[in-house]
Computed example of a mutant assay.
Amino acid sequence: MPVLVLINFPPYLSKNPKYIIINIKVEISQTLQLFFAHKDLEHEVSLPPKFFGPGLKQILTRSLYMEVEGKFHGQTGYIISVVNIDNISRGVIEDTFGAAKFLIKYKAIVFRPFKNQVLDGKISEVNSVMDSHVSDCGPLRVFISNHGFPDEFTFEPNSNPPYYISEDQTMKLIKDEQVRVKIVNLSVQASEMIALGSIKEDYLGLFM
């Protein structure tokens, strides 16, 4: 399922006046299988006393799904789906509020791309002005500046919508087109992952 990520651009991105945003879909295709993995993870769930009693395990399970699925998990990547719960610890009562903390060990499918890997995506935006943030995206967005395009491509900012076009007019990079892109830089931060991409090399760019 899609993940909502709010990206605040770092200073080095704002120096590029032209860019394309590649929206990477979550569906596990043949190309994207390398980016998915099963991981053993842990998460702590805190519950107030009103939930103590029958059905506690179901409440903890539901809380785990709500708190981790679709979320970014640091170096692990994006948690796409919880596939199994291995163990739920006994609750530890907090002294201050009376809530109990439960440590849950679980298995999940995670999405974690790496530098120099190639993936398929969809152009979700072509713009001449760098906004301060972007929202409503899949688990990863790849930003391609004008330096990431082959030299024969030129930017047409006055078109509606704007696009990049090849010198021989045969290829146009415009919103909703499918592209194959290589990750050239990947920054893993506390709450997000920011990727820079390129379509300069052979077999990259538009594909059917």
Rank of each mutant, 00 (worst) to 15 (best):
C137S: 13
V92F: 07
Y163S: 11
K107L: 07
N158M: 14
N8H: 13
V134T: 12
S46E: 14
L173H: 10
A195L: 09
K107D: 05
C137Q: 07
S132Y: 11
Q33K: 13
T31W: 01
K18W: 13
G205P: 03
V45L: 11
Y164W: 15
A99E: 11
N185I: 01
N16A: 14
K122C: 13
I59S: 04
V45C: 08
G205A: 09
M208H: 10
F207V: 05
Y163W: 09
V3Y: 01
Q33V: 07
G138V: 03
I59E: 03
L64I: 09
L119V: 08
I80W: 02
N158D: 15
E44P: 02
L60F: 00
R180K: 15
I174Y: 01
H73A: 15
I20Y: 01
L119Q: 04
T96S: 14
I194M: 07
V45P: 02
G148L: 06
M66K: 15
M66P: 00
V68A: 08
S81N: 05
G55V: 10
L196K: 06
I79Q: 08
D168F: 12
Y203S: 14
K25I: 04
S46I: 14
P11A: 12
P49D: 09
G91W: 02
E156I: 12
E94Y: 10
G77R: 04
R90N: 13
D131L: 12
L4W: 01
D95F: 14
P17E: 14
L60P: 01
N23Y: 09
R141W: 00
D86K: 15
S89D: 10
K39P: 01
G121P: 03
I109C: 04
